[in-house]
Structures are given as structure tokens and as C-alpha cells.
Design a protein around this nucleic acid. Structure first.
Lengths: 327, 327
DNA sequence: CTGTTAGCGCATTCAA
DNA sequence: TTGAATGCGCTAACAG
């Protein structure tokens, strides 16, 4: 494996000259540059990026920590991250936090292998996040609240989203509205539920018997929770599912029982995942500004890298998407 | 930022001792080890992974090169890659090849930042792939044929897949079968088309007027190609779309024109993406063994790293998934 | 415009 | 069991 030394030797110049030539420094004459490039080509020289990074004490890359590289896929959000990173001339790598402390994600978080990181991974502990955050290593968290120096936070307004979902159902004339929620320890879920309660309270409507923290944010969870609801025999007029996956599971359960949506019962979800447009009926839901969240997250990283002072928390707003699952 | 020197100083030992202690060498007494670990903790020491990698001349990580981190999402394939990588104690990072020669992917491919790479990115040129392949840097390509030393190749049998798709339609009694294809320069597309032609020829059926390389493998491309077909006025009895995305676009176009599937015309796709199960009607398609392909790809990397001799090409077979889009 | 040289932070060899 | 010394490959300050 040829190193820059070999290239320099073959070109008959000093190592530094070779380095300058290869890195497009202006201080090198065209002739020398040519010679060095030619030498590099004949030796099939490839620079060792690791050595380069070590020397410069920066990597020019940002890590995106995901709970699982194989999905669930926050496509829009990643697009936002990707676009802004590229626009700033940085590189982006994605890694998974499967495996907890042994995971690739933790390795990258801990070992200064990147210049900053964005975390969108519920399976990474707050502790690891806090331990990794340091002066000069900006960390932006997207899916939780962490109060800690050097940890910044972008979130969508889940509470208000829960509020407008419920408000919408109330405006449609429903009074008996159930909330089928996700995991108890999910921050997003808590906030959506709170929004739901607030909207009800504002209209002096009492909440439907609690089905929070039963659906687990999965399609299957939504299916089972809905089956349970049906088995109880007292269906509400409308259901607000904590996320679209659960709502889609619910749609399936209703279909199994010949209950038609939205004629018999109205359904609203949360997230606006791609699938929600394709299920039948198309799912009315709350859309999150995912692209913007991703873009903002990286933008914050760059601001911190540039030494600017920024807030430790940013909140983006949600929006109703009307489709066909509410009567 | 504390380095290992600082830790050693605080613990009152030599740097090497600190290194051994931190890396669980047996040659360090328990007492010393404790002292070093404590020092590391109080200084909030984090090792510099880059320096470590440079010294050891290996990174213990594999790169997965994708055309775009934000999808299209080869979920199953990535899962295969991920599982096997983790099982071998290696780390996995994903990076995108958007931006061509300036992309993160190329940087990782060229600069020895990883111990091996798997390429699933149509937007990376053969030339870059070939240039990057070297002794000691195994490269596995998943979406094209490259004949070159040190480049290995895992593919699904697209030709046979195209064959069984067409064969299936013929068996259902159709004679007038169109193929709507993807990009002209796509290897997968070429092979699927060839399989289509072979099946027709075997039954002495002539091909429908060529619509190959019109659909671009995108939903929108499939939509437009189908619109064109409809505008022509002479609909075939059945259509074989080069991939599911295009087929789904086609379904939409037919819906726009009140043409019902499969009553009026039969449709078959290729890939078995997640969505194909949810569209209406559910899409009959050809399933690729994606998980296996991903798993095999990494497995090959490890075999090469271990110095074993392997074939330069592996082919996996496809399978028909019957749903409701063929009459 | 080009060459000499000192580290970047760490792991590891060799002596003690 | 520990410590001193070396160098992984590269960049950049400095000198010429």
C-alpha cells in the first residue's frame, strides 16, 4: 500500500510538497503538481483518511444515530439532515444503536470519530447521551427531552398536535372520543395524550376510558387494542390513535369485524407516514414537519461548530392532513 | 479534552500502562487497573478512536454504500447486512453516494476509512468502484456486474424472475403482455426484460410494442408510462412492470381512468416492496431474497478478510408472490 | 515555490 | 508488572 512518502519519492519531491500538490494548494507549480499526481496514479496511491483526520483533529463528518438502519424509516427527516449536511460541505454517516453500549452508534458517539451527532434512537440511553456530550462535540436530540449542557433539542409540538387532532374530531360533532396510545415511557405519546386531554377539557367533554399505553406504537399493538375496544362492546364515535402505525392496525381490526370507517366510526392518526395515504380509507392524520426537523437539527450542529450561541430547545409545529377516515 | 497521557499522569503510571489497563490486558495488576480507570473517569477521558485505528491499521467497521440515505429503502437487505456484521463483532456505517465523486461514499471507499464495503448504489460509477478495490479492501457489489479483481458480486436472478413473472401471466391465459421497464442503463432492468422475452419466445408469443426504459423505476415513471399506454388506446391484457414502484404508479393511472385491476387488465410487479401488500388491489409480484443477499454480501467480506478464497459471483433465486392484481 | 520537521493520540515492542 | 521510546500516515508551521 503506497503512502504519501512513496509518492513523494517517486515524484522526486518532499513529502510536504506532495501533500500540498494533492490537496490543491496554490503554492505548488503546475509542473510539480502534475508530476506528483502522475506518481500517485502510477502507484495507485490512496490517502489514508484516518491519518489525515488525526492530524487535523477534525473529521468533517456528522453522524446520524438511528435505532435501526433497517427502519422504521424516517425518510423525510433523514432527507433534511442529508441536504443540509451536504450543503455545508460535510459528510454524513448513519449508524445504528442496536446493541446498546456495544453498538456502532455508541462507539461513534464516544470516540470522537465525528464532529457532531444527531440522535434519533429511542434505544440509546439518556446516560450515554449525556456522557458523550462535551464542549466541542455538539449533540442534537430529536426524540426526547434531555436537560444537559451541550445537548440540544429539536422537537415537534406533539402536545399541540394532539390538541388539533382532538379539536378536529370535536368540531366534526363527536363527543365520545377515545385515545389509543403508545408506550408509557414515550415522551411523544405523553404529549399527544396531554393535547387530547386539553382539547376535551376545553369543551367540557370527559375522556373515554383510558386506553393509553396499550398500543405500543406498532401496527400490531393498534390492532390488538382495537380488538379489545370492540370486544368491550361500547364503541366510541371516534378514535385518535397515537400514531399512524397503530391506526392502520386499527383499520385492519375494524375490517375484520365489518365495521366501516368512517361511516361507523371515525379514525385519526398521527405522523402522516407514507402508508397512511394508501390504506383504505386513506387516513386523516397529523403531519409532522419532519424534513424541517432534520434540517434544523444539522443546522444547529453547524452553528455550534461555528461557535455561535443557540437555544437549547426548538419546537416545530404540526398540521392536520384531512383524508377519508373521519366522517 | 483529556488524552491518555493525562490519565497516565493522574494515575501516576506510564502511558503504556494506562493503555494496557484501559484495554483489559492481563499484564496489569488489579490495583493499577483500578487507579487508571478512576483517573479516566475523573478526567472524563474518551479515547480517540481515530488515533487508535491509525495505530492498529484497521477500523473494525464495514461501510454500506447506499444511493440515498433517505430511501428507497432496502429494509430487508440492510437487515441482513446489519445482522451478519454485528454477529461478527464489526461495526456498520451507512453512507450515501449522492454527489458522485464528492460524496461521503466515495470518501469512505477511497480513503481506507473502513475495512470493507458493500455497494448498493446505482449512482456510483463502475470506475470508482474499480479504482477503490484493492488487495486487502474487499468490495461486494449488489446491483451490477463488474468484472474486476477484488470486486465480488451478489445478485438475485433477475432474468429468471422476469421469466417466471411472464410465464405466470402466460399460464393465466394472457397472450398480449406488455413490459414497462426501468432505466436503460440498469442492469436489473435489462435482465428482467430478457427474462420476459425468453418466456414469450418459448411460447411463440411476440412482444408487445416496446415500453422498456420508459418508467425509470419510479412511481411517477410508472404512472406516466401507463398514461401513455392508455392514451394509445390499445391496452394489452396484462402488464409486467419492471418493479413494484412503477406498478403502483400504474395502478394509480388506471384508477384515474376507471380501468379496474385485475378485471380489465392484469398487473404484476417485481421486488415485493412493503407497500405492494397494501395497495389496492394487492400487487402480485416477484419476491427477491433480499435479506439473504445482504447477509451473504457481508459474509463474503468476512471470508475475504480472513483470507479465504471465494467465487467472484453468487446468484440467489426469486419467487412468485400471488396477490390480487392478476385475474 | 519547495523542503525539513514536529507532532496529532494511541498501541506496542523492548528493556528493566 | 511497568516505563521509555517508536511510529502508524499525514498536515502545516516554519525555514529557505
Amino acid at each position: 500500500m503506497a503512502t504519501i512518502k512513496d509518492v513523494a519519492k517517486l515524484a522526486g519531491v518532499a513529502v510536504s510538497t506532495a501533500s500540498y500538490a494533492l490537496n490543491n494548494s496554490t503554492r505548488i507549480s503546475a509542473a510539480t503538481k502534475q508530476r506528483v499526481e502522475e506518481a500517485a496514479r502510477t502507484l495507485n496511491y490512496k490517502k489514508n483518511g484516518i491519518a489525515s483526520d488525526l492530524k487535523r483533529t477534525r473529521t468533517n463528518t456528522i453522524a446520524l444515530i438511528l435505532s435501526d438502519l433497517s427502519g422504521p424509516y424516517y425518510s423525510e427527516l433523514i432527507k433534511g439532515v442529508q441536504d443540509v449536511t451536504t450543503a455545508n460541505g460535510y459528510d454524513l454517516i448513519a449508524c445504528s444503536s442496536i446493541g446498546g453500549p456495544q453498538s456502532t452508534a455508541v462507539k461513534f458517539l464516544r470516540e470522537k470519530r465525528v464532529d457532531g451527532a444527531i440522535i434519533l434512537a429511542n434505544n440509546i440511553s439518556d446516560q450515554i447521551t449525556i456522557e458523550s456530550a462535551q464542549e466541542g462535540f455538539p449533540l442534537v436530540v430529536l426524540d426526547r427531552d434531555i436537560k444537559n449542557k451541550n445537548v440540544y433539542h429539536v422537537e415537534v409540538d406533539n402536545e399541540h398536535g394532539g390538541y388539533i387532532a382532538t379539536e378536529y374530531l370535536i368540531h366534526k360533532g363527536f363527543r365520545n372520543i377515545a385515545y389509543i396510545g403508545g408506550p408509557k415511557d414515550s415522551n411523544d405519546n405523553k404529549k399527544r395524550f396531554r393535547g387530547y386531554l386539553n382539547a376535551l377539557k376545553e369543551h367540557n367533554i370527559s375522556a373515554y376510558s383510558n386506553l393509553n399505553s396499550i398500543g405500543n406504537f406498532t401496527r400490531e399493538g393498534g390492532y390488538k387494542a382495537t380488538k379489545l375496544l370492540i370486544a368491550r362492546g361500547e364503541l366510541p364515535e371516534a378514535i385518535f390513535y397515537g400514531n399512524d402505525e397503530m391506526a392502520i392496525g386499527g383499520l385492519q381490526a375494524f375490517k375484520d369485524h365489518q365495521i366501516t370507517i368512517p361511516e361507523d366510526i371515525s379514525v385519526i392518526g398521527f405522523d402522516d407516514i407514507q402508508l397512511s395515504e394508501y390504506v383504505s380509507p386513506a387516513l386523516t392524520t397529523i403531519k409532522q414537519p419532519k424534513y424541517e426537523a432534520g434540517a434544523l437539527a444539522v443546522d444547529l450542529i453547524f452553528q455550534i461548530i461555528e461557535g455561535k450561541q443557540i437555544n437549547e430547545k426548538y419546537t416545530l409545529s404540526t398540521e392536520l392532513v384531512e383524508r377519508n377516515s373521519v366522517k
